[in-house]
Amino acid sequence: MHASDIHILAVGTALPGPAVDNAALARRFGMEAVWEQWIDVFIGTRTRHLSVDLDSGEIRSSLAELATAAAGRALAEAGLAASDIDVMVLGTATPDVLMPATVNIVADRLGINELPTYQLQSGCAGAVQALDVASTLLATGRHRTALVLGGDVSAKHFDLDVDLRALSPEELVNFVLFGDGAGAAVLSTEPVSGSVAIRAIVNRLTGLGRAPGQVIEWFGLADRHADRPAASEDYKMIEESVPVMAGEILTELLDGLGWDADDVDYLLPPQLSGRMTARIMRTLDAPRAQEITCVHETGNNGNALPFLQLERALPKMAAGDRAVGIAVESSKWIKAGFALEKI
């Protein structure tokens, strides 16, 4: 954990295409009879935004396109130009290609050059890890302003011709759980009126000896015909582990800062799904906190989620208000979180 005088000046987000509801998803895969009800009962997500068009199969948005749009909105909100950025960090589990790094494509599209860029490969903790890296770099005094990005696009893993009735539950859940999107935040060592100070960040691998809760494969020419699934997850393991880990993250943040649970005005819980987020909230001790949740409408779009939550939370915060965000990476179990205070 670390605390420093790093401030979030602005946040921007981007979502692809129109919202896709459960009925449309069920119709596309011929599962109307049971699937829509199953999504509602077990997942609890009403809509999501997808980079792939369900009718044509066309991929409409790349991660670079969404991240560039989110970055542009964050910069405009902060009143800064792209040339004001000193360092860029992107967290994602789904880069557009292995090389070049997506962060560098975004920089090119923004017209940014001659600065250090970093891309972190991570699941749902990637956005917090990117905040951690950027905050640490700013705290050295070498840089003044950072652009932090996070997002995921799952279009590469969407097989529109698959027979869902033949899939295992570990594969089936991926068709209803996830959405696509990107977010960006502008960080600075120089506060402005109404900015939010980052008081602490938790970022820690805790997966020693534990089996992965989620696996996303990539295939090359040698194994492109492999029969292993492109994406799978142990949802039961995630369901059991994430609420416990979320509680541990909240406790660590509060204890490290000397805050009481009653001091938290806004709580940004993990956004796995509508049902899971509700279950996690019941386990968290923050009795006064207003919950900031978006997964019901956006789906689980991975590293975009903390930015979508921040975009909703920051306008609500008054001077002195405190917010805590929590993220859990289940592929190899990473605890992540942050604490903010409106100055």
Rank of each mutant, 00 (worst) to 15 (best):
G299K: 07
G151W: 03
A304N: 10
W218T: 15
T94F: 02
G256R: 08
A19I: 05
L98P: 09
E217I: 02
H157T: 13
S193V: 15
A3G: 15
N300Q: 09
S154N: 15
R48H: 09
D180P: 05
L310R: 04
N301K: 07
G151Q: 00
P18C: 03
G247M: 05
V328L: 11
A278G: 15
G274S: 02
I43D: 06
A64V: 01
R73M: 05
P212I: 01
I280H: 06
D223W: 07
W333E: 00
Y235V: 07
V20H: 14
A107V: 06
L268Q: 15
A26P: 04
L90C: 03
G44E: 06
L205S: 14
E77A: 15
P269G: 04
D55T: 12
S232G: 12
A222Q: 10
L98Q: 14
L160N: 12
R60P: 02
A231C: 13
A19M: 04
A286N: 03
S331Q: 06
D40H: 08
A78D: 03
V52G: 05
E32I: 09
P229H: 00
A67I: 00
D5C: 06
L172K: 13
L205F: 14
A26Q: 01
I85M: 08
L50A: 04
G325T: 10
G220Q: 09
A166W: 01
N300C: 15
T277A: 11
D40F: 12
L267N: 05
A24D: 11
A184R: 02
V173Y: 10
M281H: 11
A278Q: 14
S83W: 04
F307G: 12
D21Q: 05
K332G: 01
G337W: 10
R142K: 14
I292W: 05
T102E: 01
G126C: 10
D227N: 11
L284W: 07
V202W: 00
H296G: 14
R288Q: 09
K332C: 02
I6C: 09
L305Q: 15
K236V: 15
G79M: 09
E114H: 12
